[in-house]
């Protein structure tokens, strides 16, 4: 399972049960990234992919349990720390912005290897940084 998450400068993810931000070019990036693999997400995340035409997207509110090896999981409002055994990779998209937050990405990545780092320009974000961590 490969988790995809978006975080702000403080590793914040959500505020007041709402995502901190979104970007259409980031979504395009994700769709390109997964190739022919499955992309799991819950019904909340589906709301931002509503106009994304991809047969690979699977919606299930219990998707972290169902995702298999090699599947991608777009995680916005869930804690993945209890799924570390299943995780093969973590892809973090940094907004490079400070937003309010009351839910954070808390996984300790000190034992993970940063194998790739890339910047790109979003639609509404000057610079989005993608980091790929593997075990």
């Amino acid at each position: 399972m490969i988790a995809i998450l978006c975080v702000d400068n403080n590793n914040g993810m959500m505020f007041c049960r709402r995502r901190q931000s979104q970007d259409r070019l980031l979504r395009e990036h994700v769709i390109h990234l997964i190739g022919l693999h499955k992309l799991w997400m819950n019904s909340y995340s589906k709301t931002q992919f509503i106009n994304t035409d991809s047969a690979q997207i699977l919606i299930d509110d219990n998707f972290l349990e169902k995702a298999l090896h090699g599947d991608y999981c777009f995680v916005e409002d869930m804690d993945i720390s209890q799924y570390t055994e299943k995780l093969e990779k973590i892809i973090l998209f940094h907004w490079n912005r400070l937003y309010p937050a009351d839910m954070f990405f808390t996984l300790d990545l000190s034992e993970w290897t940063l194998e790739e780092k890339e910047d790109f320009t979003g639609h509404s974000h000057e610079k989005i940084t993608k980091e790929v961590y593997s075990k």
């Binding site: 400068n9 490079n96 400070l98 990545l109 000190s110 290897t113 790739e116 980091e131």
Partner: peptide
């Protein structure tokens, strides 16, 4: 100027 992102680990990317 915003603070720099808090990178979860300081390791440089491989590659």
């Amino acid at each position: 100027i915003e603070p720099q992102p808090q990178v979860p680990q300081e390791a440089e990317p491989q590659g």
